[in-house]
Structure formats: C-alpha cells, structure tokens
Design a protein around this nucleic acid. Sequence first.
DNA 1: CCTGCTAACTTGACAGTGACAAGATTGGAG
DNA 2: CTCCAATCTTGTCACTGTCAAGTTAGCAGG
Lengths: 190, 190
Amino acid sequence: MTRPYHHGDLRRTLLAAAAEAITESGPAALSLRDLARRAGVSHAAPAHHFGDKAGLLTALAAEGFTFLADELDRTRAAGGGVLDAGVAYVRFAVAHRAHFAVMFQPELLNGSDPELRSAQDRASDALRDAVASVQESELRGAGARIAGLSAWSIVHGFATLWLGGALPDVLGDDPEEAARQVIRPLFARD
Amino acid sequence: MTRPYHHGDLRRTLLAAAAEAITESGPAALSLRDLARRAGVSHAAPAHHFGDKAGLLTALAAEGFTFLADELDRTRAAGGGVLDAGVAYVRFAVAHRAHFAVMFQPELLNGSDPELRSAQDRASDALRDAVASVQESELRGAGARIAGLSAWSIVHGFATLWLGGALPDVLGDDPEEAARQVIRPLFARD
DNA sequence: CCTGCTAACTTGACAGTGACAAGATTGGAG
DNA sequence: CTCCAATCTTGTCACTGTCAAGTTAGCAGG
C-alpha cells in the first residue's frame, strides 16, 4: 500500500515542515526537495502550492505576521500595557523563530503578495494599538508616533540579538524575563 | 593576452564582489561561481581562499565587526556620547549593509573561526566602552550593564528594520537623523 | 642561471537544487 | 455516469557547491 495520490493537506504540511527545517538550520539551507521528501511527495509538488521558493517563504511570513497580530491582540485583550506587548513580541519571535527569521527579509519574499500584505497590515495595526495606550509622560515628551517606533526597535532588536545568540549570559535563559529587563529602561517612570 | 595566472589580490577582490552582490540581492542569492566570474577567475578559485561558502561569509562578517569597531572607536575619540555611538552603529549598518546582513546570522557562519572571534571581541569591547561613559542618571536607575543592552537592542532593531524597509516614511530618508529621533527616548533626561 | 618547492589557480567531475513542461490521477460537481 | 479542474508525478535542464587532480607562477637557495 502506497500513499494516496492526493495528500489532502499538503500545503499546511509543507509549511510546518518548512518551519521545522528553518528552525533547525536557517532559511538559506531550506530545500524544496527536502520538504517534499519529508512530506512523502514528489519533488515538484511544492511548486504547485507555492509556485516558487519565494512563494513558500512568503506564505510562511504571512502566517508569521498573523501569529504576531494574534499574540499582540491577545495581550491587549488581557489588559496588558506597552511593556507586556513588548514581551509578547519577543515571546512570538522565540516561539516561532522560523517565521520571524523570514518576516523581515524582503529579498526572500514576494513583496507584492496580497496575503502577505494584508497580514502585514493586521500586524501593523496591532502594533499601533499596543503603543496607543502608552501615556505621554512615559515617553519623555517624544511624540507618540516616534515612541512607538522606539518601542518597536528595542523589542525587535532584542529578539534578533537573542535569537542570534549574541547576548551575554548575564540575562539568564528565560527570554521573556530578559526582555522585560532590557525593555524597561525605555518606559520606566522614575 | 589573457589575465595572469596569479590574480594577485583575489581575496580582497572576492570580498568586495561579495559585498556588492549581497547588497544587491541578499546573502541567500550569493553564488561563489558568480563571484568567480565577476573577478575573472575560474569557478573553484574562491574555495582556495575561503575553503567554503561559509568561509567567505565568515570573512565578510569578520571584516564587518572590524569596521564596526573602527566606527565606534572613531566616534568615541571624537568625544561622542552614547547617542552618537548609537547613530554610528546605524551609520555603519547602512554604509555596509552586506556586512551587517551577515554578521548576526550564525547559521551562515563558521562560528569557531579565530579571525571572526577576535573581530567580534574587538567590536564587543568597543560597544562596552561606548556605553561605559553613560551617566547612571540617564539610565533611569537600571544597571549600566542592562542599559547597555537596551541601547544595543534599540539601535540594532532600528538598523534592521530600516534596512528591511519596514519603517514608515514619517522618519524621512536620512537614516542617521531618523535614528537619532528614535533612540533619543531611551536616553533623554527630562 | 637553474633547480625545486609551495602557494595560487585551473580543469573536470559529481550529487543536489529550483524551475519548467507534459503527463497521470483523483475527487466532486452537474 | 461523465467530465473537468485541481492535485500530484515524471522527466529534464541549467546551475550550484564541493572535491580531487593537474597546471602555473613566484621565489628562495645553490
């Protein structure tokens, strides 16, 4: 008995396999043929669903932006403040490092893809909302818009450095706790 | 008349070509054979100097860390403060985006390479020195160590997002000025 | 001058990859 | 029951990274 001709859920399977493979060895080492093997299908099957390697990564990135938006909305619904949103950003990056690794590398993606665009917009809105609640006093007089970008930058930078293993051991091994420490100086009111 | 058998400066030429190619289309699209063609040598010539594709990227990364350390030392020598060091970090990232794109992607590199290690150490020291001058009052009571990581995070995140084209147009098109605005909230004493 | 040695480069080959074209199979709408 | 469109396969091509073996050139010592 062999596998059925129609896999049934190949698209999702491939995305999951891609995330796993990227988590293991980065986006550069990703091979469509290897994904096909892992999924037990022929080497050209992925192309049918994603057209292209860039298409696959674009789909992954879109999924990532959706996950991120979900995570941010969730913390916001739980009454979290800006600091919590920042920690949520880091939590997302660590939990879905494969997605995160692809989301901000435009040259790997199909920038014009409508799914990607709308997922990006959702995440963008969620980010904006997360920062909107911040008090002017917490921002040391900077405009709320600029302060939002400051928050985004510090959180994004922390996540990137953490995932790259660039940060010193002083921070411990819990990314969320470490993030809280590093982000706090931006918002702490003295 | 053909090219001489010995190129004379192939290593440097290849590194420059690699930087150019990566700037154009990212590290993933880099091809050793293409570099060889650009340099007018045979397809296997690069391997002799770098052993490996990872070897080439490692050499690029090491060069990048050296450039970064130079840039930071220079601002420090000019009497710049933490904010200036941050801007210098961004200036480096924009001026050498190919190097920057490779420096923090461990899976592309040969992490044990001694040249890379020592260049990383130099940059690390330069970063530490840049933050060392900061006053405790500017840090809102956070330990100097943590505050240094905050500064690194915000600057690294800004550079990454800027290069990825993820930041809104509100910031204008001068990266250094934009960086100054975004970094300031972390250090401004009100 | 020439002998030999080593670093720099070339040539040739191999397996693996992404992409494309053309064919096979299937589930499901009508 | 028929047919059609979506799904997947097979075969092929140019290209890539890497390795092994050969070639050339610079250079030190006689």
